[in-house]
Design a protein around this nucleic acid. Sequence first.
DNA 1: CAGTGGTCTAGACCACGCT
DNA 2: GCGTGGTCTAGACCACTGC
Lengths: 266, 266
Amino acid sequence: MSIIGSSTLTSIDSESAQSLDMGMASSIAPTFSPLYQQIKGLLTHSLQSGEWKPGELIPSEIELAARFKVSQGTVRKAIDELSAENLVVRRQGKGTFVATHNEARSQFRFLRLQPDQGERSYPENKIIEVRRLRAPADVARLLDLKSGESVVFLRRVQSFSGVPTILEELWLPGSIFKGLTMERLNAYKGPMYALFESEFGTHMIRASEAIRAVCADEVAAQLLGIELGQPLLSVERISFTYGDRAVELRRGWYLTLAHHYRNELS
Amino acid sequence: MSIIGSSTLTSIDSESAQSLDMGMASSIAPTFSPLYQQIKGLLTHSLQSGEWKPGELIPSEIELAARFKVSQGTVRKAIDELSAENLVVRRQGKGTFVATHNEARSQFRFLRLQPDQGERSYPENKIIEVRRLRAPADVARLLDLKSGESVVFLRRVQSFSGVPTILEELWLPGSIFKGLTMERLNAYKGPMYALFESEFGTHMIRASEAIRAVCADEVAAQLLGIELGQPLLSVERISFTYGDRAVELRRGWYLTLAHHYRNELS
DNA sequence: CAGTGGTCTAGACCACGCT
DNA sequence: GCGTGGTCTAGACCACTGC
C-alpha cells in the first residue's frame, strides 16, 4: 500500500507505487516498500529541500503521524532509521532535531586523525590558497560536473599544538560555494563542514575515503616542514550531501609520526 | 519491571548471572534498565557461553518471548540491536542465526584493502612463520595478559594475483589458540577469522585499528619484494570477541601502489 | 503541568522459505 | 500449510524537559 492518496489499508494490493525515491513518477518497477520507508522518504525530502534546517526542531511524532495518517509507531520507525544515519538527533523530552555539524558531539565524526598519546583536540587551521578554477577532468568526474565547470580550489594546513600535520586540498562545486573567501575561512573556528552548512546551506551526511601510503612531494615537504620523500598518509575523500550528491573532493596528506588514523571495525 | 525474579521463568538458565546489573528491591540506586536491554543481555550471555554457536539457529522470537515472559515486540527490539551489531543475522521466513565468518557476506568485513580498479577478491595466503613465545610487555598489555605469558606469534604474506601486498604479524593468546600449526593455517582458504571461529571457538565481533604511513624495513622490503624505505600503510589492529575481550593483536604493512584502504564515514 | 520521546503490550496481517 | 521474521496498529504508561 502506498500512503499517497490512500486512506484505506488494503492487503491484496501488492502493486503499489512508491513515488518518492527518484522524485517523480518513474514508475517502472512497482517495488513495494513498507509504509515506514515511504514516510522516511518524505521526511528525507523535507530535510533535503531545506524545509527543516540543521539544528531546527522537526514536528513531533504524534503530529507527523496525524499528518501522514499512520500510527505513531510507524513514524517512529522511520525516524529511528534517520537517527541511525545521523540525519536527525532525538532528545527525550524535547523533540527531534535536524543534525548539524555545529555541535560538540560531531566534532570528530569526520576527523579521524588523533594523537598517539593524550586527548583529542581540534587543530588550528591555516588557509594557504583559495582559487576559482575550471574543473580538471578527474575532479569533474568525481564531483559529477562537466569538465571545465567552475570549481573552488582550496589548500590548507592544519596543526596540532603548532606542529603542521595535515595538508589538504579541497575541490568544491563553484555553483554551490559562491563567495568563499580566505577571510571567511580563516575567521572560522571548528570544522569546515559547520561553515559549509551555516554559510552555504550544504550539509554533509557521509563520505567515502581511499587511504594510501605515499612519499612527500616538494609541496607537501615544504608546507609540513619535513624532508622530501618522507612517508605520508594519503587520504582521498568524497563527501555527499542529501540525496547522495557528491559536493566535495578532498585530498589530504597526514603526517603520522605522533598521530594515527583511528578506525573502528564493527 | 525486571525480568529477574519476576517469576520462575524458564528453567536451565536461572543461573543467568546478569542479576548484578540491577537491584530492584535494593533501595538506593536501582539503575533501571529497559526490559529489552535486559533481554539483550541474556541473549548475549547465551552467545558468549557458546550455548548457541556461530551459524546456528536461535529460538524464534515467539519462543523467546514465552521463555522470558515478555511480549514478542520486546524480544524483537533486543534482537534488532544484536542484529545491528552483527552478532546475529535475521532471515525472513527462516529464523535468526548466530553470525559467522563462514559466509560470503562477511568476507570483506575485516579486509579493507581493495584494488584501485577491478573487482574485490580474496588474496592468496602464505604463512611464513608460526612460533610460540612469551609475550613481550607491549603485546601483553594490549592483549590483557601478564608479561611472559604464552602467546602464538604468526607471520604471513597475502598476495593479490600473485603480487605480494600484505605482510602481517599476529599475536594470539596461547591459552586459546592451542595446536595452531602452519599446516592447519595453510590448508585453510578464506578469512582467518573463520578458522579461529571453527577450530578455536573464538568469534571476533569487532576491532579497532590505528593506521599510519611508514617506511618499509628490511624484513618488509624483502617479503613484499620492494625496496627498502618505500612507503607502506601500517595497520595495527586489536580484535575483540564477546564481552569486549581482546584476543588478537595484528600488525600489518600494506603495499598501496595498486590498492587502497577503503573507509566509509557515516 | 503539558508535551516530548522511550518502553511495553496484544493482536493483526503480510512476505518469505520450506515441506 | 505452517512457522518464521517484517510491518502496522492502538493504547498504555514511564522518563525527561521546560514552563
